[in-house]
Amino acid sequence: MLKISREQFDALERNARKRFHKDIYDRLWGLHCRPIQTMPETQVLEHMAIWHERGLSFGIESERTMGRYLGLHLTVLPDFDRQDAVYRFLSRSDLSGDQKMTALYTRLRRREGIH
């Protein structure tokens, strides 16, 4: 039986997270996302690592939902989750992380006239 130590598992997880962040970065760069294009890639990826940890603290666990969460930081407002009303909403314990991000994402799309 293959046994993976905690250190090995943590290293695998860090590498997977870095690849995930780089993939999001590359996709948004390809869409000509202005906020990304004005900052060095390393700086954007460093911010994404910090935001990822904050997303986990809000219960955001799925890759799709985390991608949306990171995308909002990169396309709408860096540190959008530090706005009082948004922070209070994301800190709720009666909704899952997926439910919270779906509600935010839906409201933003509706507000921008995207259905």
Rank of each mutant, 00 (worst) to 15 (best):
N15G: 07
Q83R: 15
R107F: 08
R19P: 04
L56A: 10
H47M: 03
R68V: 12
Q8P: 01
R110D: 12
I4Q: 10
A85W: 15
L70N: 03
R64E: 13
M39T: 11
W29H: 12
N15C: 06
D26S: 12
L108Q: 04
D84Y: 12
E61Q: 08
D79A: 11
R34T: 08
M48F: 06
R34D: 08
L104Y: 05
A103H: 08
E46N: 14
L28Y: 14
V86G: 04
R14G: 03
F58S: 11
P78I: 06
L104Q: 02
D26K: 04
G30V: 03
Y105L: 11
Y25N: 14
P40I: 10
P35Q: 02
Q83M: 13
E46L: 09
S91F: 10
E13T: 09
K3S: 04
P78Y: 03
D94P: 12
P78C: 05
T106L: 02
R68Q: 14
R64M: 13
G59S: 05
R17S: 09
H73N: 12
I36H: 12
M1F: 07
C33W: 00
E53T: 08
L108I: 14
E41W: 09
R109P: 04
F58R: 10
L74E: 07
R64I: 09
W51V: 07
P40M: 11
E53L: 04
L95T: 11
R82I: 00
E13P: 05
C33E: 01
T102H: 09
D26P: 06
K100E: 15
A103V: 11
S96F: 15
K3E: 04
A16V: 06
R14Q: 14
T38R: 13
R110W: 08
D23N: 12
L104M: 11
Y87F: 10
K100A: 13
M66K: 00
S62M: 00
S96Y: 15
I36W: 10
L90R: 09
R19V: 14
K3Y: 06
Y69S: 00
A103Y: 03
K3Q: 04
W29P: 01
F20E: 01
L12M: 11
R27C: 05
P78L: 08
H73R: 09
H52W: 01
K3C: 01
G59C: 03
R111C: 14
F89H: 13
R107S: 09
S57R: 07
L90Q: 10
H52S: 14
C33H: 00
A11C: 05
I36N: 11
R110C: 09
R88P: 05
H73S: 03
A49R: 03
Y69C: 00
R34G: 08
D98Y: 14
E112D: 15
L31Y: 02
I50F: 06
F89S: 14
F58M: 08
T65D: 05
W51Q: 04
D23A: 12
V44P: 11
R34A: 10
Q99Y: 02
V76R: 13
L31D: 02
V86E: 00
T65R: 07
Q8H: 01
A85R: 13
